[in-house]
């Protein structure tokens, strides 16, 4: 175990990179989720179709393949990102594609009475979405979002395969340097576990904070059997 203490500063730096990528990834996931999720519900074919293709392509291929593609193949098409930017982009687009389905699902499952009432009140479709449907749907999105965020955190370990010095990469270096395989892998497994638990507790707290009816939780916020692509395809 002494090896872990000796290399603690190094692990700390790797951890920071992992946290940075996770946070940026979550931010991008949210943007992508709402953009693509709402586009999927648009009345306009020109918005709906690209959103559908985007979601299917990013959900249909492996994240690790996407990562290598963005990292090693895309530059040949003249588009180049820094390693961290490429990583965040892949994580955000991939998990965003899953989360877009969460957004869409949460909105389409609003009772039709809500839409009818809006129409009766003369609200425009945009007002209907912004003032009525979204505020109701967001609490329902939180539990599956929590699963998506944990998936994203775990997926950040893949960036170690494209030369980014995150927690997993650091562990491999220390192992290569010292040969202390068991200690180092055990420690980072536990670290990831703690991070994942913290992330779920955070979303759990948000759920409680934003539940539509805080006494009796309506069925719509019941946790989805989730993880790894919160709402399965």
């Amino acid at each position: 175990m002494s090896v872990v203490i000796e290399y603690a500063p190094l692990l700390g730096r790797g951890l920071l990179t992992t946290l940075l990528i996770t946070m940026l990834g979550i931010a991008l996931t949210l943007v992508v989720a709402f953009a693509a999720g709402l586009a999927r519900l648009s009345r306009f074919w020109l918005l709906r179709a690209p959103a559908y293709v985007f979601i299917e392509v990013f959900r249909g291929t492996s994240m690790i393949v996407q990562l290598f593609w963005f990292f090693y193949a895309l530059p040949f098409l003249g588009i180049e990102f820094t390693p961290i930017a490429a990583a965040v982009l892949v994580l955000g687009l991939n998990e965003g594609a899953y989360a877009a389905e969460v957004v869409r699902g949460a909105i389409v499952t609003r009772p039709t009475g809500q839409t009818e009432a809006c129409i009766a009140l003369g609200l425009s479709p945009a007002q209907r979405m912004r003032r009525v449907l979204l505020p109701q749907a967001i609490p329902a999105m939180l539990p599956p979002f929590g699963n998506v965020f944990v998936d994203l955190l775990k997926a950040t370990s893949l960036v170690s395969l494209v030369t980014i010095v995150d927690l997993t990469f650091t562990a491999q270096s220390i192992r290569n340097e010292t040969g202390e395989t068991t200690a180092i892998f055990t420690v980072i497994l536990v670290m990831y576990f703690i991070l994942a638990m913290a992330l779920s507790l955070l979303t759990r707290w948000l759920e409680g904070r934003f539940a539509i009816d805080r006494s009796g939780r309506p069925a719509l916020t019941k946790p989805v059997i989730g993880g790894q692509g919160a709402i399965p395809a």
Binding site: L24, I26, A27, L30, V31, G78, T82, I84, A85, V88
Partner: peptide, 28 residues
Amino acid sequence: MGAVLVAAPLAGWLTACSTTEPGGSQAG
């Protein structure tokens, strides 16, 4: 909260990007 969650890290990322050396020469 939504605005902060989204805006803060993205803003950080964008500034980080503009100060980083852009990814080098174009391939080929």
